[in-house]
Write a protein that binds this DNA or RNA. Structure first.
Length: 662
DNA sequence: GTGCGACAG
DNA sequence: ATTTCTGTCGCAC
């Protein structure tokens, strides 16, 4: 939620905090236990737990009813509920797919495109997808259509172009639940009537009503068309809509009712935003994580909270009362400055005091829809009880490399409809297996961004203590290198690319990380693609000129590297082969001078292995451990930002001409 | 640019 | 008695 920096930060200096009431924000929570239930409807009413490693990462409501919970050990879960259905959730691709589908679906209900997954990532806190939608424009438009004399017979218009598209509703009523909960005589939650609200809130309240009806409409379609149930919060900013949505779940929605501001009315001592946020434990506020909450609790209690001292069982927690937002907010002297001193410091983001103070007061000016289209980094990791043999390591690195490549494909490749371009394109030339995904369209995949760096991180198992007990350290160590260009190839199979990545890049990195040939024992391995560089953004139409400029700049860079290496006479032989390997693969696509083609050889596939390498221990056996240069020289090839092709330097001009002609 | 830690979910 | 898999940012060098 915090990760968006918006360029326009010219908020007029407000006298005091003043609520911004002109937006209507929806927050959708979709529970992925329902993804599995969708796939296998027979599971619907059974207790269902998703397992990762030794723990339950999430479970459905039936399982919760029987006492299962998140982060519970599988062993305990089975003891408490022997009939629980366990689903392996190590492979997140199904959930990512579902998340993407959900996101696309919700986006189709937005007019302004302000739809936002929490952060960039689709899957946030374990198999729950969280999406914000700013529907201020839709609400504004429909507000202007209201007949204030006959709210009960309103029509919600779903399209500015087609006034017949929409649904009828009662604008005097809110759809779904509310905070505070309205009660009728029977004691059951009742529908809140606008006529009972303070009159000066009417317009604002009406807009929230509109938002709630739109939310209900979208939820209904999501369920009937996609089969997902979700929970929705309706309010004026991300913080509030996310928090308030929690009040009716699963499969419900909640609207945070006015007054949002005490100045709205003289009859109310505290506004609903304040009373609502006040009741939350500090750590429950999105944006206040474990560490911040810990510092806040310590400050308020005057001692470390026992909640924070190693969660050492409920006995200790007996008398411990939660520290609520109210406790912090009303603490003597509390304010942004005090918080800045308390929470700030080396290594913490600037302005944290103000941000937290705002959150405590229900303010959140982060906007919806400014999420990046591509992540800054993609990483894959796995943890291990024990990973200390070279064999296993190779296997794991290969798995991680394959996953990383797959993620790069799903997250960094654009589907690009090329119906006006490439008229004489042969089907074969189309890259990747676009056909497998969408056989009908001539869809081409194109890289939206290129990670320039690859990083390998490990978490060595904490050193076995002399005194016998375990030491808790989760420190990671890492090394990085240039991302080899071949990973962007869209023709080679992921498996062979992964092989190459492991042997040519990851193993050398690992060697830098753990120079000892044995003796290491890892509890975690992570492979990351970082240092993301956007491909030219507007290649679709008329962006070619700019791209050519970029390409020449890049060509210059690469040529300079080349020259340096040439002068230094660094082991050119092998690289020359690699370059020619690329030439060979690209020769069928681009015109390449015959004199260059004539002495092309296939690149020998790098051999990776083996047990001997590790077990020979002493001075010398492993070829892998003996290579001279630490850094893998970058492939001296060029990848075209327009089509993703990898091609040799000298082919750039011809390639540009090719693009100009097509 | 590299490596690490803090932090959030 | 936990530690699961990401992603972002800022600091020191």
């Amino acid at each position: 939620m915090e990760d968006q920096h918006h360029p326009h930060h010219h908020f007029p200096r407000r006298k005091r905090l003043e609520r911004q009431l002109d937006s209507v924000i929806l927050h959708f929570d979709c529970f992925y236990a329902s993804v599995i239930e969708n796939e296998t409807p027979s599971l619907k009413n059974l207790p269902l737990a998703v397992q990762q490693k030794q723990i339950v990462v999430t479970c459905n409501y039936e399982a919760r009813r029987r006492g299962l919970y998140k982060l519970q050990l599988i062993k305990d879960a089975k003891r408490i509920c022997p009939e629980v259905v366990i689903v392996l959730g190590e492979d997140l691709t199904r959930f990512r797919d579902a998340s993407k589908e959900l996101y696309a679906f919700l986006k189709s209900f937005s007019w302004n495109g302000k739809v936002d997954r929490l952060g960039f990532d689709e899957v946030r806190f374990w198999l729950v997808s969280s999406v914000f939608m700013d529907i201020s424009d839709i609400v504004d438009y429909n507000f202007s259509l209201l007949n204030h004399n006959d709210l009960a017979n309103s029509f919600f218009c779903l399209s500015k172009d087609d006034p017949t598209l929409g649904f009828t509703f009662d604008a005097a009523l809110v759809a779904g639940g509310t905070y505070p909960q309205a009660m009728n005589k029977t004691g059951k939650p009742a529908i809140c009537s606008i006529r009972s609200a303070p009159s000066d809130c009417n317009d604002f309240l009406l807009r929230l009503h509109l938002g709630s009806h739109y939310a209900r409409h979208v939820r209904q379609l999501l369920e009937t068309q996609k089969g997902y149930t979700c929970t929705v919060g309706v309010s004026t900013n991300k913080l509030l809509s996310k928090l308030v949505g929690n009040l009716h779940k699963p499969n419900g929605q909640t609207t945070l009712l006015p007054p949002y501001d005490v100045s709205d009315t003289n009859t109310v001592v505290v506004d609903n935003v304040t009373s609502f946020v006040d009741g939350h434990e500090v750590g429950k506020i999105p944006g206040i994580g474990f560490k911040l909450a810990q510092k806040l609790r310590t400050h308020i209690l005057g001692r470390p909270s026992e909640l924070d001292l190693s969660a050492k069982e409920n006995l200790v927690l007996r008398d411990e009362r939660d520290v609520l937002v109210r406790d912090v907010r009303t603490f003597p002297g509390m304010g942004a400055d005090v918080l800045e001193r308390l929470l700030g410091g080396p290594g913490t983001p600037h302005g944290i005091g103000t941000r937290v103070w705002n959150l405590l007061n229900g303010f959140d000016d982060t906007e919806v829809g400014l999420a990046r289209e591509v992540p800054k980094q993609i990483s894959i990791e796995d943890s291990y009880i024990r990973l200390d043999t070279y064999d296993e390591l190779l296997k794991e690195l290969h798995m991680l490399a394959r996953s990383l490549l797959n993620r790069m494909h799903t997250d960094l490749l654009n589907d690009d409809d090329d119906d006006d371009d490439d008229v004489d394109e042969t089907p074969n030339e189309s890259v990747l297996d676009a056909a497998a995904q969408d056989p009908k369209s001539t869809t081409k995949k194109r890289w939206m961004a290129f990670p320039k760096t690859i990083r390998l991180s490990t978490r060595p198992r904490p050193p076995q203590n002399p005194d016998g007990s375990r030491n808790r350290s989760f420190a990671r160590i890492s090394r990085s290198a240039a991302m080899p260009n071949f990973v962007f190839s869209l023709r080679d199979s992921t498996d062979s690319l992964a092989d190459r990545l492991v042997s040519e890049t990851l193993i050398p990195l690992f060697r830098r990380l753990h120079p000892e040939k044995s003796g290491w024992n890892l509890s975690l391995v992570n492979v990351a693609a970082t240092n993301m560089v956007d491909a030219a953004s507007d290649t679709a139409k008329g962006g070619v000129g700019r791209n050519i400029a970029k390409m020449f700049k890049r060509q210059d860079d690469v040529l300079r590297q080349w020259r340096v290496e040439e002068e230094d006479e660094i082991d050119l032989g092998e690289d020359a082969v690699r370059i020619e390997g690329e030439i060979l693969r690209d020769a069928d696509r681009f015109e390449i001078p015959d004199e260059v083609m004539k002495d092309v050889e296939a690149k020998p596939f790098p051999l990776v292995n083996t047990e001997e390498d590790v077990e020979q221990g002493g001075g010398g056996g492993s070829a892998l451990w003996e290579s001279e240069d630490e850094d893998m020289p970058d492939d001296d090839t060029f990848h075209c930002p327009q089509c993703g092709a990898t091609l040799p330097l000298f082919a750039i001009e011809a390639h540009n001409r090719w693009h100009e002609q097509h």
